[in-house]
Design a protein around this nucleic acid. Structure first.
Lengths: 226, 226
DNA sequence: GTCACTGATGAACGGGCGTTCAATTAGCCT
DNA sequence: AGGCTAATTGAACGCCCGTTCATCAGTGAC
């Protein structure tokens, strides 16, 4: 029996098999993800997606209004999965708020995340935010949820470490910036630093915030022009 | 007189004007940069570049072996210009090493840099690093020079601030990560934080490193799996 | 067993892509 | 003034693109 060439009970080759819309959409999303990771946005065409999914050319436009709508769906799902992975690592950590935050950071430098294929996926999304309102909206929601998660972890930290007030919102923005920037550079060139060094840098940022506060240092010359 | 339609002394319209190869290449580089900033990589074709430069279709391949070779040249020039701008701001700063570093950081959040067009250019380069060895090499050189500049600024800081040893290499990697990550997110969505908050976050990272050192904090649980 | 519903197919359309190359011509040198 | 040469042109090639739509066929209800 060949699963790729389903046959009816009479032995005649069936030309295709049906799936419920939700199930089929999931097939298309997975195939698109694989294409984006391997080829990047420029080489990910509806044709290559259909080839990867093992379906015919017209099927994407049967289930989605446009290519952009499919990509937006992929973005939504990938970012949800990613955040669930990181947040799950934080929740699974034993210990105090600091341990949960450290677990989040460590998960961010795990091999699942430090993957140049995943970077290609994200570069695809980012490069589409300026020409597709649909995708820009997914970015805003997904990044908002990401920062929100970090902010809650940092608020937990501030609550336990009463010695310092911590601007959790700003700290979350800074930490997400450092996580993203290091992730980006590591994926583009893994030889510059090790994942462990990345973890130490993020930890040092948090340690520094707890030790010195935010902007409580010498109020350097403010920018007189932007 | 119409500069776009040069005429000979006889009054007959000239069909084009010649330029020395270096000069013409510069014209093409500028046009490509404008296309990448406005349209992004996917819509930047040789045809659109030639249209923008006001030359005919065949000219790019007369001066460059391929589209990738042109893009690599653009990458080289843009990254050199950008680093010169930031480094120039640092050198122009009056005061100690800390002031020079602050000037570099402030310049990184100036409106010249915080430009979504510039982000589109960079996303184009990044998305090409995995399929063009030429462009990957430019990335490595350009990012190396960037970190090198930061590292020298941080070394100056360590020399003046004798109270602390500072791992300048690692600190440069961390600061460049935070600068890049914040720059990226601000360009994708300028409503999340202000440039001034970005500056304060980077300053806080440096302040924290000087106050607590790198990784001298509690040696959190090391990752048992990657 | 048959029928209607709808998921799935794949040819066709109009267009843009990077690259090639024979022909043209601008501009310097004699 | 006229020639040389190399910069420039633009048509042509073969290919891939997103979308549309008439047609087909798997499947569940009866």
């Amino acid at each position: 029996m060949n699963e790729d060439s389903p046959r009816s009970s009479t032995g005649r080759a069936r030309k295709f098999s049906r799936q419920a819309p939700d199930e089929r959409r999931q097939t298309l999303i997975s195939a698109t993800l694989r294409c984006l990771a391997e080829q990047g946005a420029e080489r990910t065409s509806i044709r290559s997606i259909c080839r990867e999914a093992g379906v015919s050319l017209g099927l994407v436009n049967h289930h989605y209004d446009s290519k952009d709508a499919l990509i937006a769906d992929v973005y939504e799902q990938v970012s949800n999965d990613l955040l669930a992975t990181l947040d799950g690592a934080a929740r699974a950590a034993e210990g105090d708020a600091r341990e949960r935050l450290s677990a989040f950071i460590r998960a961010s430098f795990s091999s699942v995340i430090l993957d140049s294929g995943l970077l290609r996926v994200w570069l695809s999304f980012w490069s589409m935010t300026h020409k597709s309102r649909l995708i820009a909206e997914v970015h805003d929601r997904s990044y908002g949820a990401y920062r929100q998660t970090l902010e809650e972890l940092l608020n937990g930290l501030a609550r336990e470490d009463a010695s310092q007030r911590l601007d959790a919102r700003l700290a979350a923005i800074g930490l997400s910036g450092m996580l993203d920037g290091l992730w980006l550079e590591w994926c583009l060139n893994p030889h510059t630093f090790t994942p462990d060094e990345g973890i130490r840098l993020c930890e040092a940022f948090i340690d520094g915030l707890l030790a010195t506060g935010m902007g409580t240092g010498s109020p350097r010359q403010t920018p007189h022009r932007n």
